[in-house]
Design a protein around this nucleic acid. Structure first.
Length: 470
DNA sequence: CTATGGCACGGATT
DNA sequence: AATCCGTGCCATAG
């Protein structure tokens, strides 16, 4: 049914099991580091160059043509999913992204995190025209530590010999990428960009935008009475709006952490992770298969050095013992890595099928799912799934990067419909009314719970809410 | 009196 | 065993 070949598994020893577990809870980048370390101190291991697809640069694990490039377009009768591994950034139709001057995309991964420019570039790469790549690179390298543009747009447009409008177009793209609002010229612009994007997916107080545009000075100085005057609203409403802004927007985009657009955990350093998994569509067409790629940031495949294995029979004594040990370790590591990848692959295969609607159409379509259920169908222990799920992130076709845990979020779909109800409301509905409406849509939840969901989504209570006119 | 947020309890999940 | 989550009860604000 699927085109995925699962390597046959060998019985596991306890050491095997323990190590697989450790590897399973690592992100792909951590794993790469681990492998590098092993390579350095175990002579029995070697990294061999693998075959890559000449047109898309993907790693080809099985003989034959690239499963993606060779696929006739729109082959919708084929399986919903197939999995392939890749080791570098993917840019549809354009080959490896080595392009221009600035080393935005290094040839080798050097550390566990990538910097902000790289992180953003990867998100927007699919939407960039080839000629826009230089512009994007120029903008991204000109960001200051807050994520704001440190040079005027004119300078870029002049230097790149393109009209300013082109530059602005690219800036727009960058603003929409994950730390929302990066690439803006100043704090005010950044906030406006964020509110713009935010309002597409969730309700936003009507006057929030006006507050930033007209009352920016007062807003930043917390002069709420003056702000209220300008906007012709009461002071408490002004405070509500200020609250919304400080809860949901980031004046300095680069300081925001990815993921939860909420305040609170300000502990996260400005480190951006690359996803461990990338899910995309083979072709943007309904019924088109999903492409699930499990990232492995290492060039080459790990194997036991054949020369080493050969030599070992000729060696004697104490040295032989040492070598034997190395060899065993090498074998074990390789097996464990296979095991890890196998589990991650099966997990994603399940998720891609079971949560296809969510992947393609968004939060509302997430089906309730527990790790235990997955564990049962995949016939592995619950804790195995737990480990595989935690600490990994996936990039969805929309470009959003989400933790895999989100696939198991019990209330995400309800929160999403709650958002849409509030987005469409004419007058601000109270929590009790919202609870009733949700019940009609098949989500019987308590009033108290509505309040909690609201808080989670950063939506103000009814009395401080002004409905956005549709 | 109504609408909300805080605290804490119990059941489910990990 | 530890954690998460939905909910009920109660205090508080308007």
């Amino acid at each position: 049914m699927f085109q995925i070949q699962i390597p046959s598994l060998r019985p596991m020893t306890t050491a095997h099991l323990a190590q697989t577990m450790t590897l399973l809870s690592m992100t792909s980048v951590e794993l790469a580091q681990k492998i590098e370390a092993e390579l350095a101190n175990n002579p029995a291991l070697e990294l061999v160059e693998e075959r890559r697809c000449p047109s898309c640069g993907r790693v080809l694990r099985d003989p034959g043509p690239c499963p993606i490039c060779s696929r006739p377009h729109g082959d919708s009768s084929s399986p919903i999913v197939f999995v392939s591994a890749r080791s570098d950034f993917y840019q549809p139709g354009a080959g490896p992204m080595s392009g221009h001057g600035q080393d935005l995309v290094p040839d080798e991964y050097m550390s566990a995190s990538e910097d902000l420019p790289t992180y953003i570039l990867r998100q927007i790469a699919p939407e960039l025209q080839p000629t826009e790549r230089n512009i994007a690179a120029h903008i991204l390298t000109s960001l200051n530590e807050d994520g704001l543009l440190s040079i005027p747009i004119e300078e870029i447009s002049h230097y790149q010999h393109v009209p300013a409008e082109r530059v602005i177009e690219v800036v727009r793209l960058i603003q929409r990428a994950d730390p929302l609002g990066c690439g803006s010229e100043n704090v005010q612009q950044a906030l406006l960009a964020q509110i713009e994007i935010l309002s597409e997916t969730r309700p936003v107080p009507e006057l929030a935008r006006a507050a930033i545009e007209q009352g920016f000075k007062h807003l930043s100085r917390r002069q709420y009475s003056e702000l209220a005057n300008i906007l012709q609203i009461s002071r408490s409403e002004a405070e509500g709006i200020a609250q919304f802004i400080s809860d949901n927007l980031y004046p300095f985009p680069a300081r925001a952490h990815w993921g939860d657009i909420r305040h609170g955990e300000e502990s996260a350093p400005a480190v951006y992770h690359q996803p461990d998994i990338v899910i995309s569509r083979l072709k943007s067409q309904t019924g088109s298969p999903l492409v699930v790629e499990i990232l492995m940031p290492l060039y080459g495949t790990l194997q036991v050095n054949p020369a080493f294995q050969k030599e070992i029979s000729r060696i004697h004594d104490e040295l032989k013992e040492k070598w034997k040990l190395s060899l065993e370790q090498a074998n074990l590591l390789i097996k464990c890595i296979q095991q890890r990848n196998n589990i991650v692959q099966r997990l994603l295969e399940y998720l891609a099928i079971h949560q296809r609607d969510f992947i393609l159409n968004g939060d509302q379509y997430l089906k309730p799912l527990t790790r235990a259920q997955v564990a049962e169908t995949l016939e592995v222990h619950e804790s195995t799934i737990s480990r595989a799920v935690s600490s990994k992130t996936a990039q969805l076709p929309s470009g959003r990067i989400v933790p895999l845990e989100m696939f198991f979020d019990r209330s995400l779909h309800i929160r999403a419909t709650l958002r849409s109800i509030i987005a469409q409301e004419n007058r601000a509905l109270t929590d009790t009314q919202l609870a009733n409406l949700l019940a009609k849509q098949g989500y019987p939840i308590a009033r108290r719970t509505v309040a909690k969901y609201r808080a989670m989504e950063g939506i103000l209570p009814a009395n401080l809410r002004r409905t956005t006119p549709a």
